[in-house]
Design a protein around this nucleic acid. Structure first.
Lengths: 154, 154
DNA sequence: ATGAATGTCTATCAATGCAATAGACTTTGT
DNA sequence: ACAAAGTCTATTGCATTGATAGACATTCAT
């Protein structure tokens, strides 16, 4: 049940983009290099990943001096599920329970297939997290943890 | 978030083993060929899979004429999580949230890493299903669905 | 207009893992 | 002794993954 490096890097990058201290301007534009340094991700690889995310409509970019990437929507409007699907495909562990990419699996009877019943639950559980957690939720949660920690250290 | 064929075949096979109509004898012994025919799994591949499951202590076997495989414990004592881990490794999407195979992931601060917080939830959700669903639970559920269906057809 | 800074695009590569196949070997029952 | 099962190890083809490379396009400052 593994998240690929592609997916991992992409999610990390989007979380950084969403969490960066916003300068007065409405659009915090960040360069690839800034993100790859911060998160220790190979720059050239991250390049491809951000490009995919851009082509999927989750990021916008600006070329040239002072350019970089910025979120295409508000952090509260981008879910981790959207990001994941762009980079790693369907959430479902097995295609016959996928909502976005269903395909029959050839078992004798799909309706009563035990594996399918359980994997349907798993897909649902994963989706209920990733499709209902936005980048804004992640930032909030990080902040909450930070406060928790500073409270304990008193 | 994909289940490998190995994992899929192994889970299917174990579910079959657990669900087979039990002849009077305490141990329903089933041959590889029987399972591979029923579930349309390449026989030689299934062989390796069942062997792994045996070496992991989830199956027992009997060689020679009239031999085959049978569950090493009661269906209620074998969880899908156990089977999954033997064939596909840790449940966690990312190693830094794995209970069985933890490894640091090198992010700046693990405690406040947004990705880690969310993937921890995902791991928990998957585990709460697979580690709390036994082969007996699967059989019960299949039976329930069958009854549901026959009720509707009236 | 020029040049530097940035993103865009496509190709390529090595390594790995996956799915499957093959075949020789061992044990057991009759 | 033979046939029916599981055991074990090697091999193979193929796709995917993670990464690197380099030529190209756009933008801005001067």
């Amino acid at each position: 049940m593994r998240l690929s490096k592609r997916g991992e890097y992409g999610l990390r990058a989007m979380i950084v983009l969403a969490g960066l201290p916003q300068p007065g301007a409405p659009l915090p534009v960040v360069q690839i290099k800034e993100i790859s340094d911060r998160e220790k991700i190979p720059g050239k690889y991250l390049e491809q990943i951000l490009l995919s995310l851009k082509n999927a409509g989750l990021l916008h970019s600006k070329m040239g001096v002072g350019g970089g990437y910025y979120l295409a929507k508000l952090p509260s409007e981008i879910t981790l599920g959207q990001i994941f699907r762009v980079l790693d495909g369907p959430l479902a562990p097995i295609r016959c329970v996928s909502q976005m990419a269903y395909e029959p699996c050839g078992c004798p009877d799909e309706q009563t297939c035990g594996l399918r019943l359980v994997m349907g639950d798993v897909r649902g559980a994963i989706s209920s997290i990733l499709d209902h957690t936005s980048l804004a939720d992640v930032s909030k949660r990080q902040e909450a943890v930070r406060q928790q920690i500073s409270k304990q250290s008193l």
